[in-house]
Nucleic acid binder design. Structure first.
Lengths: 128, 128
DNA sequence: GTACGTGCAAAGGTTTTGCATTACA
DNA sequence: TGTAATGCAAAACCTTTGCACGTAC
């Protein structure tokens, strides 16, 4: 499904995602957009996310086992994940990394992703 | 829930997982173990996986958005993922990698994981 | 007018939970 | 005997799908 029409719902989703670094779930997006467009449906959010994925305007993250998270920044970059609250933060620096041919198991490599795990500042405080 | 009793079901699951490098899903484990213990239930598989997670005898992988995958090798290591068939292969070589303090966003780092994406040999062949 | 998009509700797939029963210590 | 584990079924989630109704081109 290509994004042939920019409906108000889609515009609202795009506006919410533009520059967003929260890595929201579909439900997050739904809740946020519904504040301004109360008539929007969750199906339309999923629908739009599918369209955006296909034109590479959004990236689906497999970081959170509980739910898919979405990232409007589709440039290669890495992430820092709070193991307690599941907050996801972008890593802005390049992390040079190469997999020796001998370790590629015959795969044709197309991409890579580094995840650092830890406790975010808020969860460190809460822990005390 | 600690693993206070080693029941036949749990022994069967452990035996299946021991040395397994397939990164199976709960359903995979259920199907495999059921061949030898047809009376086992899927709930017991999830139950046992929870117990094993708590004693760090198995690791939950968030690699596959469709379902959780499990890895009995809990030592730090990285993975190679086929984007077509979702096969997951271990990377055995160490990948030196450090996140500069200035990029840690105040997180206390506890771990890391590198994922390489690509096409496995089978899916390269099938593609032609 | 026709294709596309929306919203609702239902269905699908995975994981969790409640509970009565079983079985080990 | 008491506690832990099992198995079944139901429930809870997240996500997808079917379909009738709108709406833009």
């Amino acid at each position: 499904m290509a994004m042939t029409r920019l409906t108000p719902q889609r515009a609202a989703i795009l506006e919410y995602l533009d520059g967003n670094t929260d890595h929201p779930s579909a439900e997050d997006i739904y809740r946020a957009v519904r504040r301004r467009y109360p008539m929007i449906s969750l199906a339309t959010v999923y629908n739009t996310l599918d369209a955006l994925k296909q034109e590479d305007a959004v990236m689906e993250l497999s970081i959170d086992t509980a739910r898919k998270r979405y990232d409007p920044d589709t440039r290669p970059h890495n992430h820092l994940i709070c193991t307690t609250c599941k907050r996801i933060v972008d890593i802005r620096v390049r992390l040079p990394l190469r997999l020796p041919k001998s370790e590629q198991s015959g795969f044709k490599i197309t991409g890579k992703h580094v995840e650092f795990y830890g406790l975010c500042p808020d969860c460190q405080d809460a822990q005390v």
